[in-house]
Nucleic acid binder design. Structure first.
Length: 447
DNA sequence: TAGCTCGTTGGACAA
DNA sequence: TTTGTCCAACGAGCT
């Protein structure tokens, strides 16, 4: 009997268009589909409450598809290396395959696993369209500015995806003959770990969860119908103008290449490449997930004000668009992109609170919480990131609301008390803006 | 090598 | 009401 191959699922919770799965099928070996729950290996960025809830549903969905194929998902909890070694012993597996992860902690962990495992391993790229290692500027250095990066990629992308991806797309999927998974013992029950948040919160979130690759493909299909209007509508939180694909992409419920192929509208494709750029920056500058990309911001006089941070988190700042966004986040596990920038700008520039506090809150409450995107986004807002010198770019929450929610539809949806006993502004925006500008000016004077 | 241009998403103010 | 200019100045990336 042929020795089996382990497919180690991570943030690639799909069977279609999954290079690791495709590779395993092509070996003709019996397949052991495995997921390991080992959050401490990602600390301090282990999945937050919202992430865990979605993950639970996504794992269930993946298992269902596997069951339809006469298999099932093996779920284990604990130290990844120990679990792999144990399963290899029990199953006689002589090969393992997975899709690469780029988070600094996980990259290091996977490297040590590669060094410790005695069986063959294959590592695929299922999370990104691009091969990050191959992209350098003319000086042979990694890009630090998006536009040159994007233009550089456009130069080869069409040809590259045509060469690289036909072999990765797989609509019809047939798993190989099965290995007797019962030999591997029963699954660990990780439900309690994944559902540690309060019951009422979980219940409230349920309507907003549509996990799994079937749901992801449906979202893509829906978006493809209005993608042509993306550029005009994506800034409007009162309209469904965005793709709503971020969580599916984060958990790998859909292949980014599948999205690229289906959606041809340039403005959206540019966003997809932004996602790649965030991973590229994290890959080349791993410190930037937790530290200012620009070192001079290490001296920025952030304010520690827990009371104000709480008001922001709870959507009680007295600025309608900020509060609407924060409440949308709390109620649904998602926030419209433009509103993310506005609430971020408010925390960092009006309250002068460290971007990392905002990043932590988003990390815990967003279904799509993604280390590369979250850190880059917050650093962009703070002005400490890869984007050059936008410190005077301070969003005005009032004029932004007039521009992008002209009928107050979005604001009214989340702030029913708007016309009755709504909170007064916690700070004066004009004064706060001037203070922020002064703080940054001081920073460059010191440098 | 030196010089040039540009930088995802803006705002205030003046005309 | 709309449009143009400035906000400060740096460093990435190109020519």
């Amino acid at each position: 009997m042929t020795n089996p191959i382990i497919v180690w699922f991570k943030n690639d919770l799909r069977l279609q268009d999954n290079p690791a799965v495709n590779y395993a099928i092509q070996t003709k070996k019996p397949i052991i589909p495995l997921f390991i729950w080992s959050p401490e290996e990602e600390a301090p960025w282990q999945p937050g409450a919202a992430s865990k809830l979605w993950l639970k549903h996504s794992l269930t969905a993946l298992n269902q598809v596997l069951v339809e194929q006469g298999s099932r998902l093996i779920i284990k909890q604990g130290n990844s290396l120990e679990i792999l070694q144990e399963l290899i012993k029990l199953s006689g597996a002589d090969e393992i395959v997975w899709n690469r992860r780029y988070e600094p902690k996980l990259k290091a962990r996977d490297e040590s696993i590669v060094n410790a495992l005695v069986i063959a391993h294959k590592i695929c790229n299922g999370a990104l369209i691009l091969n990050l290692e191959q992209i350098k500027n003319k000086q042979g250095q990694p890009f630090k500015v998006f536009t040159p990066f994007y233009n550089h990629c456009l130069g080869f992308l069409e040809e590259y995806v045509q060469q690289e991806y036909p072999k990765q797309l797989s609509n019809e999927l047939k798993l190989n003959d099965q290995f007797d998974l019962n030999k591997l013992g029963s699954n660990d029950d990780i439900t309690e770990d994944l559902l540690e948040a309060p019951d009422h919160w979980q219940k409230k979130m349920l309507p907003y969860i549509s996990a799994g690759e079937q749901a992801a493909l449906r979202s893509l299909k829906t978006f493809s119908k209005y993608a042509a209007d993306y550029n005009e509508q994506r800034d409007r939180p009162d309209i469904t103008g965005t793709s709503k694909l971020s969580t599916h992409l984060h958990f790998g419920e859909i292949s980014p290449y599948r999205v690229w192929k289906e959606i041809k509208a340039e403005p959206y494709r540019r966003q997809l490449i932004w996602r790649e750029f965030a991973y590229y920056i994290m890959h080349h500058y791993p410190y930037s997930t937790d530290n200012n990309f620009k070192a001079e911001f290490d001296k920025f006089p952030w304010r520690k004000n827990i009371a104000q941070l709480k008001l922001w988190q709870q959507g009680q700042t007295g600025y309608p668009l900020v509060d609407a966004g924060m409440r949308e986040l709390w109620e649904t596990g998602w926030m419209h992109n433009r509103v993310r920038m506005i609430v971020g700008s408010f925390l960092v520039k009006d309250l002068l609170i460290d971007w990392r506090e905002g990043a932590k809150w988003f990390w815990d409450t967003l279904f799509d919480a993604d280390l590369a995107n979250n850190s880059m986004g917050w650093q962009w807002v703070a002005g400490s990131g890869v984007d050059a010198s936008p410190f005077f770019r301070i969003f005005n929450p009032i004029t932004q609301a007039e521009k992008f929610d002209p009928h107050k539809k979005y604001i009214r949806k989340w702030i029913p008390e708007l016309e009755t006993n709504y909170a007064r502004p916690m700070v004066n925006h004009d004064a706060a803006r001037k203070e922020a500008l002064a703080a940054v000016k001081q920073l460059s004077a010191k440098a």
